[in-house]
Design a binder for these strands. Structure first.
Lengths: 352, 352
DNA sequence: CTGAAAGCGCTAACAA
DNA sequence: TTGTTAGCGCTTTCAG
């Protein structure tokens, strides 16, 4: 693979007829070097196929040069925890290359994110990873971080593509919906009547999931019908009430797709109406409290959005970017998984 | 998190009243140090909560101290390629810590593996990653590598747990079967009659997949019936013939689970008999030639065994083991994924 | 068996 | 603008 048997800064310096310091300055595009010498040094480096030794670089540069700010809701055992674990563990793996975490959690999604971002910006972070609760509101701050402070902002789980954020990592909401739809079409009888529960259609993510489900279900089950799209604002009482109404109004309902993590009240209502089994439920994501509903056959499947992997991927993109100079993709979409009873125990939320 | 503000070998040496060299020898359990000094040094290290700086270690030890042998069938665009890519890319990511790949491919599964292993053993590898075609036959050699040469042997995709291999990474075959069974039970009508295609039941992996499917299907579809378990020895002509026979003998067949990657001949035979759609096919793994069958609705789903991730995981386990001293788990089981038409484009075999 | 000293490849502080 | 030099924390000779 590798051609150059020995080509370090030393060799470059020798061939370009300059000193180590100059090579370093040229390589890093610092200002204290003349245009012409820089060109020459870079030419030699290119010719030699110079690959910096990251180990030596990290060692010489001293510890914790790359501080990464993390702004994620503090939870216990849920989605955002997994995201955070993925981030922190991956940063840990790269700590020897100087990665360091600055954890500034917010109490819950969308609360205090701006303040947390400001705090991080003051502490010399090179990147900020955040799960924006209201992406649009945060956009100006994201733009400021990116443009004024040269901080790479990575959105996780949710996105605002109109802001200047460097990249976003998520399962494409529309794909969530189409995958659920295809599965729903397969597991329900012919000409099935199904419904969707969502949070608020005003939220872009929610709306796109629903759109994906609607168009996917129509395609995969032409004889089927979507009889209701219920907005529950993720409030438990509202969910129960609307679910009960739905079950009463649609006695032959064959399936429900819940596009948020709010499946518990739906499942309980279904059981209370003795509709378990007849109404196939496809949920979203995973947490221990949902396990009994899988076991009792209330939840047929769940669309899993790989929170841990989202966090891990974010860090890997940053490592490639900062350490290898790789460009950041505009967005990175992960492949969701389907959870059934059989593979349930292997997901990290359940395995412990 | 971290207590010790400064505790390197230097500090240990100072506190233990010895020199750097002695600390190093003690820390690495080399022989040229007296029992008593070593104890003392280790005690100080423990007390200080000493964590070696991997960067400095890699830099000082020089490049490529940890050579990893890779013995995997050479393919184009298939399962083992993905495994190999996962391994090589992850080794690349850790090259700065001294990881180096020694790639000794075999022409096909089970051919020349012993010779390849012997070659690697002579080239001073610290670990061997292999996908054993006939695990039992290789066992003595694996034992020799582990015990005589102190080489960590990691089995991928397939396992021989009776050998002395350090660990094995795979999707548990039984889980493959039960997951396919649960899905089959959901997507077929009540009291469905289904069949299984496998390679050879004499192969442990194949047998366990079938067992998983049989018991899972009985549990999830008590009224259903498994009308045939077909051994096709993964030979195309045999597969076609037996599949045609099956379709003729079982005109009301509702589903086929193919537990090997040999789905193409089955799908083609089904289409030739105009049975597409009526017979739901659940396949195993993924490759581009299968895509049209997904699109035409012949293959309803596939159980994906994450070949790339298997390779990547193997390397990560080795990194943790060699660099952090973590014990290797006896086996590492990955969570299989379900491929549907909707998420098909996101798998790396298809995305390119 | 132990100590002293010379780097690994790179960055950064200080001179020139 | 450029060159020189001293390390980063560890391993590894080579003497003692």
């Amino acid at each position: 693979m590798d051609r150059p048997s020995k080509s370090g800064v030393r060799e470059i310096a020798r061939r370009a007829g300059v000193s180590l310091g100059t090579v370093d300055r040229a390589l890093h595009g610092r200002q204290e070097v003349s245009e012409v010498t820089r060109e020459r040094v870079l030419a030699v480096a290119r010719e030699l196929g110079y690959q910096p030794n990251l180990t030596a670089r990290a060692l010489a540069a001293g510890k914790s040069t790359i501080r990464i700010g993390i702004c994620i809701p503090r939870e216990i055992r849920f989605f955002y925890d997994q995201v955070r674990d993925g981030i922190l563990e991956e940063i840990q793996r790269y700590s020897h290359l100087g990665l360091e975490a600055l954890y500034e959690p917010v109490p819950s999604l969308g609360v205090g994110e701006a303040a947390a971002m400001r705090r991080m910006m003051k502490q010399d972070v090179r990147a900020i990873l955040l799960t924006p609760g209201h992406p649009a509101q945060l956009a100006p701050l994201i733009d400021e971080a990116e443009k004024k402070h040269n901080i790479r902002v990575v959105c996780l789980a949710s996105d605002d593509s109109t802001s200047a954020r460097s990249t976003a990592i998520s399962v494409e909401p529309r794909l969530n919906g189409t995958l659920a739809a295809e599965l729903m079409a397969r597991i329900t009888p012919h000409a099935a009547r199904v419904a969707v529960f969502t949070g608020m259609l005003a939220t872009e993510d929610h709306a796109r999931k629903v759109q994906g489900f609607v168009s996917g279900f129509q395609r995969e089950s032409p004889a089927g019908q979507i009889v209701a799209v219920v907005e529950d604002h993720q409030e438990e009482r509202q969910t129960r009430r609307k679910c009960a109404q739905l079950l009463k109004a649609q006695p032959d309902l064959a399936g429900i797709y819940i596009s948020t993590a709010n499946c518990l009240p739906v499942c309980e209502t279904i059981e209370a109406h003795s509709a378990a089994g007849r109404v196939r439920v496809i949920a979203t994501d995973l947490f221990v409290d949902a396990v009994p509903f899988f076991q009792r056959g209330v939840i047929a499947a769940s669309i899993y959005q790989h929170p841990y992997l989202q966090g891990q991927t974010a860090v890997r993109l940053l490592v490639d970017h900062f350490l290898q100079g790789a460009p950041m993709p505009n967005a990175h979409y992960l492949n969701p998984s389907i959870v059934l009873k059989a593979n349930l125990p292997l997901f990290r939320e359940i395995a412990g």
